[in-house]
Every structure is written in structure tokens, then in C-alpha cells.
């Protein structure tokens, strides 16, 4: 049997708006995943350390302060530096459409904006991890 999906939900930087992060953490946990929530005010390095230590399949970043591009770049680079490029990085927050192609170019997965359905987030993480695991198995 597959091991349960492990997800790190992280709040990078100074932004304290944690409603979304907590709701997503709870939704993923209720869906049977193992969820670690970092709490507030994390640096990219702290997030990636936690991701590696906890051996997670996915990292979800929540940013509502407008500083998302900065943090996605930093976390992507820090994951690469630790050789953790197989970890799915996805996110949510106040992210305009115009930034999406740049994030996709960095290898970032889906971004969920205000109004997103938590069932969609669960389904996305589940299918994306399943896809990656089956690729890794082949």
C-alpha cells in the first residue's frame, strides 16, 4: 500500500493572514493526508529544512501580502539546492493571473486564489502526487 501523502503547509515571510493556510491544512488532513503546518514568519530556508526533514511529498505556500513571487523563487531555489526537486510546490493567496506563467516557468504547480474549493485542492494534490509516484516507479 502507498504511504500516506505528506504535505507541508507554510506561511513564508511577514504575512500573518493564516485563515486560508489553516483551512487547507485541515482539509488535506481530513482527506487522510499527513499535514505539517509551519506556523507564521518562516524563511525559505526554514520551510525547505522542514520539508526535507519531514520527507514531504508536497509544499503549499500561502502568501497574501503581494510578496509571492519573491518567496516562490526563494523556495524553488532552496529546494533545488537541497536536491528536493521531486517535491510538489503549490500555493494560494492573492496572486494575479499575470504572475501565473512566470510561476509555471519556475516549476510551481497550481495556485489557488480566493474562492477556491478545498475539495479541488485535495483532488489536485492527490492526483499530482499519484502521477509523480507512478512516474518515479517506472
Amino acid at each position: 500500500m502507498d504511504r500516506p501523502i505528506r504535505v507541508l503547509i507554510a506561511k513564508p515571510g511577514l504575512d500573518g493572514h493564516d485563515r486560508g493556510a489553516k483551512v487547507i491544512a485541515r482539509a488535506l488532513r481530513d482527506a487522510g493526508m499527513e499535514v505539517i503546518y509551519t506556523g507564521l514568519r518562516q524563511t525559505a530556508e526554514m520551510i525547505v529544512n522542514a520539508a526535507v526533514q519531514e520527507d514531504v511529498d508536497a509544499v503549499g505556500l500561502s502568501v497574501l501580502s503581494g510578496a509571492h513571487m519573491h518567496y516562490f523563487r526563494e523556495v524553488t531555489a532552496a529546494l533545488a539546492a537541497r536536491g528536493a526537486t521531486d517535491v510538489l510546490l503549490f500555493g494560494g493567496g492573492i496572486v494575479p493571473d499575470t504572475d501565473l506563467p512566470v510561476l509555471a516557468g519556475l516549476g510551481v504547480g497550481r495556485i489557488f486564489t480566493p474562492g477556491a474549493n478545498t475539495d479541488d485542492v485535495v483532488a489536485y494534490v492527490r492526483s499530482e502526487i499519484a502521477r509523480r509516484r507512478s512516474q518515479a516507479a517506472h
Binding site: G13, L14, S65, H70, Y71
Partner: peptide
């Protein structure tokens, strides 16, 4: 250092 990427954003 903690202000990197956040100055003038919100």
C-alpha cells in the same frame, strides 16, 4: 533581511 520582497507591497 526580513523585509526582502515585502517593501511597499501591501
Amino acid at each position: 533581511a526580513m523585509a526582502l520582497g515585502e517593501v511597499g507591497k501591501c
